[in-house]
Design a protein around this nucleic acid. Structure first.
Lengths: 329, 329
DNA sequence: GAGTAAGTTGTTAGCGCTCACAATAGTTTC
DNA sequence: GAAACTATTGTGAGCGCTAACAACTTACTC
């Protein structure tokens, strides 16, 4: 592998001039720059990241700390971050948490600091994550996905409360009055926000917000809850915390002879690619996860390159109406 | 940040001795080792990765090149790789391909070489990927997921052909004689292997293998194909290339009044967490993607640390029988 | 007890790059 | 035309680590 020195020799300049060309320093004459660029091309020179990193203490790497990274939302957020990062010339290093705990988070952050990452994006949608980050100030910019951030941490989120309002608003418009909620686990930031949004929208319309059950995001939990609800029949409409639980719910209702949407309307959350092919096709709230990831990197780049302080960005959700909602009988 | 030198001073030894302790060299007396370890703990010393990397030309980093990384299979494979890598003390850097092309693959590989990764795992299930890798010998070990590898590339795969045989065998056992296949896109290695397995199993049983349609893995394509098949009714059973297309197919059949499994049996492939909650619950072939990822890293570590030559590992698939298959009417 | 081997520790150099500063050439100002 | 700039290029040092070698102990052999 050719070194800076080799390029310099070939171009007939000093190594420092080559360095200037590589780093786009202004004070290099056009002629010299071209000569150096030619030499770089001829030798197929590529800068040694480790050497650069050693002296600058920057690694051109963003660490992405995630959990549940194989789920639709996190996976797509990661993708958005990766694309935006690579476009900006950054490497992306990942650490996937097997279990969410303070110790595991600390571990992963240390792992990133060992690599001297320039910034850390955290896709760990648990409430305790923010607390852990507050406690262990990593000394590099941190963007937490799915939160508004805090004093020292930037946040990028989809407006969950707004999403819940869209869903509930749609059901109210159709004439529903008893609208239940199947919530996600309440140690997830988003699950809490959706439940709050549901509750707020109902109260604003003068309706009861007492029909809540908590699932664990899985289709299995949706199924179990669905079996129970099918026998009780308390609500005419259900706002479900995500599309997977909705799927399980639909399955349980189908088995129990409860018709959707004729007997009960169902609204999900996420809009996974499959949701339009459930039986019936699911009305749901779309979140643009890739956009969320890109926004994260926007905040990150501003923090790294312009030294911008902590800030927040919010992505708007969108209601997608399909066949699982109708006016109550 | 404390340096090696600082630790050495505190422990009253030379920096080289500290280096030996860190790198687990054998010839350090127990007393010295303990003294050094104490100093490391007291100062909170962490080795500078860049400096180490500069001199060793190793980065303790594995590059993972992927496409469709938000899909269930690739995402979980990535997870398996990440866990195994981190357990072995390696960092994981990712590059996600937006589109699969030789140029994009070359680009990503160069990106990894810039980081002087110690190895590259490729999760790009397109046939042309292998060719591209053959052409551009990166100079570090490469493991390609979903292939048997080649002369210069190791391979880790789930036995797709066996999976297809399991599915078709199950249908034949139930008494089906006209068994169609909804294939995945034929530029995917797995799609080809599944189609071949289906075909081979049918021919081995003396049955026709002329009922094939090609989809694009999406639920949407399964739906379109399902609408067409519902009117034709040529087969009594269908082996579908993946679970998502199966979902679309089930939806189309449900709309058209074709009953599953009474009128047509359906077997999918993948066993995503949701598949057990389709209507009806889907009989499918399970692939253990995380295991696949771990196996990848096994091969990789052997290649890196023991200089093992190119090799292959195969994960066995498993048939999961649920409610979408039954004997023909 | 001299000679050899094995175990333990220290010394020096250099990986490839950027930073701070020095030096030179070219331009403007009065 | 000398002083004072500005633009361009070069020089030397050092980031923190490991590899190679040197040096010193201790133990063992005959």
């Amino acid at each position: 592998m050719p070194r800076l020195e080799d390029v310099a020799e070939r171009a007939g300049v000093s190594h420092q001039t080559v360095s200037r060309v590589i780093n786009n320093h202004p004070n290099v004459s056009k002629a010299t720059r071209e000569r150096v660029e030619a030499a770089i091309a001829e030798l197929g020179y590529r800068r040694n990241t480790a050497a650069r990193s050693l002296v600058t203490r920057k690694s051109q790497t963003i660490g992405v700390l995630g959990s549940e990274l194989s789920q639709y939302g996190p996976a797509n957020t990661l993708l958005g971050v990766e694309h935006a990062a690579r476009d900006a010339g950054y490497f992306v290093s990942i650490a996937a948490l097997r279990a969410v705990s303070r110790e595991a988070i600390f571990d992963a952050i240390r792992h990133f600091l060992d690599q001297s990452v320039d910034g850390i994006v955290v896709i760990v949608p648990h409430s305790e994550t923010l607390l852990a980050l507050e406690e262990l100030k990593p000394g590099v910019p941190v963007v937490a996905v799915g939160s508004l951030g805090s004093e020292s941490v930037s946040g990028a989120m989809v407006d969950q409360k707004r999403g819940a309002e869209l869903a509930v608003g749609h059901l109210i418009e159709q004439g529903h009055r008893r609208i239940g909620h199947i919530a996600g686990p309440q140690d997830w930031i988003d699950a809490v926000a959706r439940a709050e949004g549901w509750s707020a929208a109902l109260r604003a319309a003068g309706l009861d917000d007492n029909l809540v059950v908590e699932g664990d995001w899985s289709a299995g939990s949706g199924y179990e809850i669905g079996r129970k609800l099918a026998s009780e029949r308390t609500a005419t409409a259900l706002f479900v915390g995500n599309d997977q639980m909705s799927l399980g719910l639909l399955r349980a209702f189908s088995e129990a002879g409860v018709r959707v949407p004729e007997d009960v309307s169902v609204v999900g959350f996420d809009d996974q690619p499959e949701s339009g092919y459930f039986t019936p096709p699911l009305t749901t709230v779309r979140q643009d996860f890739e956009e969320l990831g890109r926004r994260c990197m926007d905040l990150m780049l501003r923090a790294i390159e312009k030294g911008d302080t902590v800030s927040t960005t919010v992505v708007e959700p969108e209601l997608v109406v399909r066949g699982s909602t109708a006016a109550p009988a």
